[in-house]
Design a protein around this nucleic acid. Sequence first.
DNA 1: CGAAGGATTGATTAGTCTCAACGCAAGTGG
DNA 2: CCACTTGCGTTGAGACTAATCAATCCTTCG
Lengths: 244, 244
Amino acid sequence: MNPVLEHLTRHVRLSVSAQSEFATFVQRLAKPIAADDALLEPGDRGKTFILVSGWIVREASLADGRRQITALFLPGDIFDLHADLIPECGYRLRAVTDGEVAVLSRSDFQRLVAASPEIAEALTWEQLEQLANQTEWLTNLGQRKALERVAHFFCEVFWRLNAIGLARENQCDMPFTQAELAEVLGMTPVHLNRCIQELRGRRVVELRGHKLRVIDGSRLAEIGLFDPGYLELDGVIDGSREPV
Amino acid sequence: MNPVLEHLTRHVRLSVSAQSEFATFVQRLAKPIAADDALLEPGDRGKTFILVSGWIVREASLADGRRQITALFLPGDIFDLHADLIPECGYRLRAVTDGEVAVLSRSDFQRLVAASPEIAEALTWEQLEQLANQTEWLTNLGQRKALERVAHFFCEVFWRLNAIGLARENQCDMPFTQAELAEVLGMTPVHLNRCIQELRGRRVVELRGHKLRVIDGSRLAEIGLFDPGYLELDGVIDGSREPV
DNA sequence: CGAAGGATTGATTAGTCTCAACGCAAGTGG
DNA sequence: CCACTTGCGTTGAGACTAATCAATCCTTCG
């Protein structure tokens, strides 16, 4: 099963026909995107997206140029639901890697919701998850120290990728540059680099060539005070692929 | 007009009859809450709320006891839509002050949405606003320094209260203790206290007896790098009550 | 080979936390 | 009516975290 369907069916059981219908729907709207493409610039009218492959970030800027990455979207994520109501959005959506994304018009979106009540429910779950995720990120930035933040973020990414079948063994993608990671974690690239070295030195993770290798997952979770509850709101993601 | 209706009609025009219908609906479900009451504890099944009066916060805890306030709800705010799907929520909802809140069951909620398409749209706006707000809070914690965070938060609260008619002159409520404010802003109470003194010393704001007085609003906005865009997504809140 | 973008290092400074004490005002019980 | 308590705000000193500024070192790629 592909990541998009893995993701969609985490909380809602979908018939095979509904799944293939959804897959076809997404396939039809999917377009390639290249690393660093902006899908949406501040001031644009909002749109709804379904990410098929690749990584996308939402980023906000302060007047003086400081930037914060405020969300990370991975394959299968459906985001900015109803955003088409907003005449001028305040953020940028940027592709971190090459990939494919489906851009939904309002009518596309309505058709999708109307297609089946299960899909509508899956979309609601999607929103709830993203809200929970934002809350966790707030806690991350507000309460955790730099090293803890880094560890927590690595846990989250590995866990999320694992849930959609994109982690192999103890390894997953990590296409961010250190500067980008620093923008996610609200710290300086220099300091982030030192945190990564610390984790490397403690034999907890290895980060090379944009691959993240988790050497000691439980240690990593401990350092990051990571509790995956916010990623699996109803406690059922996929028992067959329990990570670490 | 009361704060709840002020809030509801910021983005969507509602007929007088729809408004009074909504008001009646809320009134019927409204219950008093006392300061420090927990409306929801971690592990509870989620519910949907409409805040009639008073302040409510959402707060998250780390395993070691550190706490972060991740959202602030003011009169008129409708929050945790669809949360009843979640069997075990991960946060606490706590009343900061006495007030009144309507707790909606799933059927209440569905009845509300069915009542009119305008109300359904208003609820969608509500979600979009809260998302935008969370994004701004993330930027606040990630990129702004302590003093800037304090200034920004004061701007936000004053602006939001002003939009629903709960700010008089340059003054509004600020019922938080400094310890709570510190939990909103991800810093130590001690350091928060020093930031407040700094703002007081610069004659920007005054904070006494749980009232916030904005002495120099444009200066405050400047210090906090505050851009109200995220609070008024479609640019139309209420031209007749332009703050500061 | 040279250029460029990232990663790494070092030295210094600024910002924030920690801990501990003290002040003040409101409430409580004798 | 006073002594005591309690919760919150304020102050100070010192330690530590993270930012800043620059330089250097890799790779990769042309």
